[in-house]
Design a protein around this nucleic acid. Sequence first.
DNA 1: AGTATAATGTCAGTGTATGACAAAAGTCAA
DNA 2: TTGACTTTTGTCATACACTGACATTATACT
Lengths: 210, 210
Amino acid sequence: MSDSKPSQHEEKKTTSLRERKKHQAKADIEEAALRLFHEKGYEQTSIQNIADAVMMSSRTFFRYFASKEDVLLGFIRKAQRDGIRSLNQIETTALPHVALREVFESLAIEYQKQRSNLQIRYQVAMQTPSISSMFLYSLLESEPAICDALYSRLENANVNEIRFLVAIYMASFRVSVEKWLENEKNSDLVSLLNDHLDYFLTMPIGNNRL
Amino acid sequence: MSDSKPSQHEEKKTTSLRERKKHQAKADIEEAALRLFHEKGYEQTSIQNIADAVMMSSRTFFRYFASKEDVLLGFIRKAQRDGIRSLNQIETTALPHVALREVFESLAIEYQKQRSNLQIRYQVAMQTPSISSMFLYSLLESEPAICDALYSRLENANVNEIRFLVAIYMASFRVSVEKWLENEKNSDLVSLLNDHLDYFLTMPIGNNRL
DNA sequence: AGTATAATGTCAGTGTATGACAAAAGTCAA
DNA sequence: TTGACTTTTGTCATACACTGACATTATACT
């Protein structure tokens, strides 16, 4: 505003001023929103509150995020999508169990990178039923995509078997993530997941019942 | 209104007129809502549309249902709750696998009773992302309750083990329900579930990998 | 019948979300 | 720097989901 002169040199780099501002605005919204959600609770925080905090109109909020929920969970969906990319690197000759182990391990690694970020979102989500459903959904919504990808890549794969196995692995992953986020001590999601999968794969089952 | 005279005899039976009217109103709302959801889609149907269809004010709608979503999924939550009641009949000496098998079998039986009703709700839910998340949640939200009940009833139970097992069984149940509702042919959820569980319990795993 | 009680309608208000259009800011070339 | 062009933002209007408050109507009870 009252600056002497705008210097039109230095960083032109890769992104334009416009791009940088957009990126910053989105980051600002997300930061303010998470802070407010954490302080006052998700439902107690209105879009207007968030917009006020970053000094923009509430209409502009919706130009950066599709919904209030998107601010909280869009990040998780992205992590989920990124993690699933590893599917394309799986050999078509791999066994379903090997492929699934790889998929969910890379997903776990992706999650691991964002622990604190995920944790605060998880905490907020768990305090609001309508949001915990969306959190759950953000984990499970990629299940069909994983099934499709596995089915198209693996030779001699059975659709129903794949679908069932993916659901089982997904459940293991979900419980691992929940435990991991609930307890500060559990810093290593990957080994937590592997423990679960190992346990699941070596369970002495089918004998001690019926 | 223009009736000659209200007869104050005949059916006094068990419920009062007031109770019967309330029950009828709720049933009317639910029926109209499901019909409209099916015809126009969930999001394309407003509360006002539903209220108009049963000739009441939209305010009254909310005296029977907590939300629009409640009309669609309250039924499922109820079935879920009813099915879980069987938990209390489990002996404290039962093995977790036996107990879980029983719990989910009785849940399946409860679902089975309401196939067509569940099917239309499932179809509507699947057409709307925000609602499919709630559908998913209505299945999974009872997971903690099952864990708690099992843990308190079974001797020598390990919390983490229970939690993990319940999640696995829940995933099997979910996939069974989905397959059951997707295909008209699959009329028997109980055997579908048992097939899945048997498959899961006898899987040749842990050997053919790593 | 008349009074108490419960259900319903009306009205006003909050919050989420979206379309339309005007105002402001960034971009680029002369 | 100016001026034209594009993108972003603000403002306004609107729709829908939901809630509280209060008046109105219908059932219940004696």
